[in-house]
Design a binder for these strands. Sequence first.
RNA 1: GCCGGAGUAGCUCAGUUGGUCAGAGCAGCGGAAUCAUAAUCCGCGUGUCGGGGGUUCAAGUCCCUCCUCCGGCACCA
Length: 516
Amino acid sequence: MSSFYLTTPIYYASGEPHIGHAYTTILADVIARYRRRAGRDVLFLTGTDEHGQKIQEAAAAQGMSPLELCDLMAGRFEAAWAELGISHDRFIRTTEAEHRAVVTALLERLRDNGHIYEAEYAGWYSVGQERYFTEKEIGPDRVDPIAGEPVERIREKNWFFRMSLFQERLVRHIEDYPHWIVPATRRNEVLGFLNQPLADLSISRPRSRINWGIPLPWDDAQVCYVWVDALTNYVTASGAIDPAAPKEERGFGDPRPARWPADVHLIGKDILTTHAVYWPTLLMGADLRLPRKILAHGWWVVGDTKMSKSLGNVVDPLDLRERFGTDAVRWYLMREMPTGQDASYTPDRFLTRYDQLANILGNLVHRTLSMVKRYRGGIVPGGSADGLARETEEALEAYHEGLGGYRLHEGFAAAMSLARRANGFVESQEPWALARDPNRSGELDRTLATLVRTLAVLAAMFEPVVPAKARELATRSGLDGVPRFAELRTLEVGELAVTPGTPLFPRVEARPGSFG
RNA sequence: GCCGGAGUAGCUCAGUUGGUCAGAGCAGCGGAAUCAUAAUCCGCGUGUCGGGGGUUCAAGUCCCUCCUCCGGCACCA
């Protein structure tokens, strides 16, 4: 069984989980579930980024140690993911001993390879905020964006990574692999960015300012700055590096099959540069392979503005969940947002997408199982179930193309269209008329068996996005569980005992504007 | 300013290498049916494919130009 390794970013533990985190993580979960159903041995990684000044300050402000705060926040994220049905295999924390050891090993490797040097870092420092701000943050007036006080240009000793050394190689890689960064618009941005000379990357900060971090193995007065610390989590969790081994046997430069490289890094478009420039060059510097794909997704916007807490226009997915259920929220997020692009949230669209689930899929399930019960005592007739064969083939093909090609919205549209075709099949077969005519009993058997078989296919197709409902669908259809794709071809539905029960997606009378 | 992307039915958008490409879903209007959550199914869209010019037998689909909108331009997680 071939393996598949996918990651979300690790989320910074200074804030609560929000829609942005939830979207990325659900996206990853859907892909992970899809790959598992397709027979892959999946490693799905998520976690929290726990070092740095903000954590240090936030902990102090709340009278806690940094680690206590991180324990608390990591728990919040894990609880949120449990509620959203996330099936990650590993939740990594950058404060774990294993991760700290791998980061240390990576830093040593970079230094041994001659890619690290000491130099002065110059930046715009705010004495009041005790931190550096970027050019963008301070604006033309050169004041810190929080207190509005002037910032000053100061210099301090830092260790640098020779990122510039790898610029050419990186550009060539991006050009050689057109689908390495998707969508294409993000790829263009990176290429545009790399059109200018790449500077080297500062990778440390003096411990006198920030002590909540991983010390550099060769300079105890400096801690590792965020990039190397956070990004390395992907390698840590892959298990490719054994930091306890002698230097030459730790796994750097090792081409043997392993979890590394990752098949895909899922990220928001805000951290594109770190993942498409910093990270690959760091990997090159350490003789590690590059991830196979970087998928940057878009933002949820309200009207024309990004959702943000300060604007007060945040829609908390957990709130929607209370009324519509977790699976409905997942469906909306995956179906409404074209993978990689921005999408606009409106209550109206949410309800439309929910109605789709209830009316097209949910109703198909209910009417099918009800007819099996009414006309055949709840036992699926044996014999032929070969209706809708062409429609099913077509839908599966489009579905795999969508899910496999990271156009999830298209894949799920194909799944829904199969449910539509099945409803059309019911109309054209008129089982209720067949049931009144004893001479057409065989045709009714075939119709019902076809419909149940289609439900099994739909359970498999929908499981990645609405896992709990798909499981229920399978169970009610009399199956032991949701079938894998490979099992669909030979699946027998005859003699299964079905349970109509109450609707899978009950009608919700909520009207637009009434949530959150 | 520089680079990149987008402007197609009321809304959200599909439209490979130019020639049934003028489409889908939603909304709207009309009809059918009753197994089902009044849930379904069928039928109905002459829209200057942002404006103008050009190439071609033929252009949303290529070239030029203009207009509008969006994104990126690094140590920010």
